[in-house]
């Protein structure tokens, strides 16, 4: 706990897939209480980084420290229990459970009765109030009884955030939270992220530069598996190397446009 200002620290993180280096010696430090964005062209290794951080993939080299604790070799569920909880690129819900049940199954874990196969499901009703509160926080109160598969896409992402919030995580990792969304939904999710980031740390992968510019305190740019630049948006968006890395991709216009 030498540095209480840093919540997550990555050193020399490397992942090779049979010879191909997807992530190459990445160093990253996320300050507590900030929104930190991870950007970069397609194939830069952003999602791989995420998977390494939450141990859905095992790193080849490097260390990951969360709250001063080495989590490099931990089981993904154990990492989640420490308070480092991720979302997924494609909205991760439980489609054939109701909206309320989705949140409740997350709340349920801390009750310690999740192995109790002999108990009636009614014991879970005591969690309904808290689950509804969380749903109302993301404007889903009216959908509590609906089957999740029937929700529109943007609502599913909101549900995913509510489910993550149910764990009251110290740090959230959001993998492209606005991907595949219409304009209106993007605005709603941005507001939501800003709201939930109070008293929390957020690390997100995001393609939408407007969202990145709008939300993040710090930006790390990845290209070809390595860190290319880091800093606040105004600085990073003027970095010549960053612009070059985006040349040829459709993002270049957006970077400059948002910087202007």
């Amino acid at each position: 706990m030498a540095d209480t200002d840093t919540i997550l620290e990555i050193r020399g993180l490397t992942k090779t897939f049979s010879g191909f280096v997807a992530v190459d010696g990445v160093d990253l430090r996320v300050r507590r209480g900030t929104i930190h964005a991870l950007i970069g062209p397609n194939g830069a290794g952003k999602t791989t980084c995420f998977n390494l951080l939450t141990r859905f993939l095992a790193p080849t080299h490097g260390t990951i420290t969360f709250n001063g604790r080495d989590i490099t070799r931990m089981h993904p569920a154990a990492i989640a229990r420490l308070g480092l909880v991720r979302s997924f690129q494609i909205s991760a819900t439980f489609p054939h459970m109701t909206v309320l049940e989705n949140v409740r199954v997350a709340l349920q874990r801390k009750t310690g009765i999740s192995m109790h196969f002999w108990k009636s499901g009614r014991v879970l009703d005591q969690l309904n109030g808290r689950a509804l509160e969380l749903l109302e926080a993301v404007d889903l109160g009216a959908f509590a009884g609906a089957l999740t598969v029937e929700l529109p896409y943007g609502r599913k992402r909101a549900l995913e955030i509510a489910t993550t919030l149910a764990l009251d995580p110290e740090m959230m990792l959001l993998d492209e939270p606005t991907q595949g969304m219409g304009h209106e939904d993007v605005g709603r999710v941005v507001d939501l992220i800003r709201k939930v980031a109070v008293n929390r740390t957020v690390l997100m992968v995001e393609h939408n530069m407007n969202v990145v510019a709008d939300l993040s305190d710090t930006i790390t740019v990845l290209a070809r598996g390595a860190v290319l630049a880091e800093g606040p948006y105004a600085e990073v968006s003027r970095n010549a190397q960053v612009l070059e890395a985006y040349v040829g991709s459709e993002q270049v216009g957006k970077v400059q446009e948002a910087a202007a």
Binding site: T54, F56, P76, A77, A78, A80, R81, V85, R86, S87, F88, A92, T93, F94, P95, H96, M97, V105, A106, R109, S114, T163, L167
Partner: peptide, 15 residues
């Protein structure tokens, strides 16, 4: 049921 419907998500919830 959560595991059946979305195992990675169940893991990411700490199960």
């Amino acid at each position: 049921q959560a595991i059946r419907e979305n195992e990675p998500r169940a893991i990411s919830l700490g199960y």
